Simulated assay, not measured.
Amino acid sequence: MEQLTPEQFKRYSRQIMLMEFGLDGQTRLHNAHAVIFGLGGLGSPVSVYLTAAGVGRLTLVDFDTVDESNLQRQIVHRESSVGQPKVESAKTTLQALNRWTRIDTFNGVPDEDTLDNLISGADVVLDCTDNFDARFAINAACARARVPLVSAAAIRWEGQLSVFDFTDPDCPCYQCLYKDASMEGMTCAHSGVMSPVVGMMGSMQALEAIKLLAGLPTLKGKLLLVDGLTMQFRTLTLPKDPACPVCHPD
C-alpha cells in the first residue's frame, strides 16, 4: 500500500486528526479506486468531494454533454463547458482540484461486458444515474464483481440513499428495493428538482463511500429518506428479498 508523502499528510490533516478515521483511513482513500456512474446533479458533488478528500483514482462514466440547464445543480461543470462531454468537463475541474487523484473517463453507454470491465478491481461504485435501466444494470454488475455499491437518488424536494455491500452475503441489493421500473418516468427533466437537494444527497453519498473505504459503519441494510422541504430525515431497515434474482440467484 502506497504511503502518504509529507505534503499529502498536510493536505489531508483535517481528516487525519479525526479519531475514527486517522492516518489509516486516509491511506486507504489514497490507495482506493472509485467508479462514478453519472456526472450530473449527484455525480457532481460526489466527484468533487471524493477528489478533495484524497481518493487516489476515480473512473468517471457518462454518455451526455453539458447543457445550460444542467448548470443549476451540476456544480462540477462550468458555463465554458456547455456542449462538452460531461466526463471531460468534470475531469478538467477535478484535475484542477487535486493533482494526486488519477482521473479516468468513459464517454458512452457501457454494455454488460464494458460494465464488468469498468467495475473490475474497483473498491466502491457510486450510482449517480437517473434511470432505472442503468441502476438495475449497475447493481447486477456490482453483484457479479462483489463490489460495494453506494446508490442515491433525488427528485423534486426528496432524496434517498443506501449502501449495497456485495461483500456481505446478508446485505440486500438495489433490486430488493425496487422490483421493476414502475417509476421510470420520474426524472429531473420531467418532475424538476431543487438544486441543493442533489447537493445534499451527493455529499452524503460521497460520505458513505469514504466511510466504506475506511472500514467505518455505513447505511448498509438501511434506506435513508430525506425531505428537503420539511427537513425531515427517516432511516428504514431494508430487508433482503429471498426471491431476488440478483443477490439470491439460486
Rank of each mutant, 00 (worst) to 15 (best):
P110L: 11
V198T: 14
V61H: 11
T59Q: 09
D133N: 14
Q15K: 09
I119E: 08
D227G: 11
Q3G: 04
P196G: 14
A53F: 05
K10R: 14
G43R: 04
N139T: 00
G228W: 02
L39N: 12
Q160P: 06
F37K: 10
G199S: 08
R78I: 04
I155Q: 10
E112Q: 15
D165Q: 10
A209F: 06
F166Y: 15
P249K: 08
P148R: 05
K86Y: 03
S89C: 05
C176N: 12
G202R: 00
H248E: 15
G221V: 00
I138N: 00
P45K: 00
V82D: 04
D180H: 01
K220V: 08
V61S: 12
V163N: 04
P148Q: 07
V163I: 08
A96Y: 06
H33G: 11
S162F: 01
L219M: 06
A181D: 15
F63G: 08
K86D: 02
M231S: 05
M1S: 15
P45E: 04
H190G: 03
D227T: 09
D64R: 14
V226N: 07
A189M: 06
A181C: 12
S81A: 13
C128N: 10
Y49F: 12
T27I: 05
S80H: 11
V35P: 04
F233N: 10
T218S: 10
Q3V: 09
Y12P: 02
Q74K: 06
N131A: 01
L149Y: 02
K211H: 03
G25P: 04
M201L: 15
A214S: 08
W157N: 07
E20T: 11
Y12T: 02
G56H: 05
T101D: 01
P85S: 09
T51G: 09
L224E: 06
P249G: 10
V66P: 00
P196D: 12
E88G: 03
R234Q: 11
N117E: 14
R99K: 09
L4R: 05
T27M: 05
L177Q: 07
F63D: 14
G22R: 02
N98H: 13
L212W: 06
A181I: 08
L236D: 04
A137S: 13
G221F: 01
G38K: 04
I36Q: 00
G40M: 00
Y174Q: 12
L23V: 15
D133R: 14
L212Q: 04
V150Q: 03
L4F: 07
S13Y: 11
K240N: 02
T59M: 07
L126T: 07
G185W: 11
V46H: 02
K10S: 09
P172C: 14
N107T: 09
S151N: 05
H77K: 01
R234L: 08
D116R: 05
K179W: 08
C188P: 03
A90P: 01
L207F: 10
R156I: 05
D104N: 15
A141R: 01
V76K: 02
R57I: 07
M17H: 07
L97W: 02
F37R: 08
G159Q: 13
A52L: 12
Q95L: 11
L238H: 06
L229I: 14
T129A: 11
G83D: 13
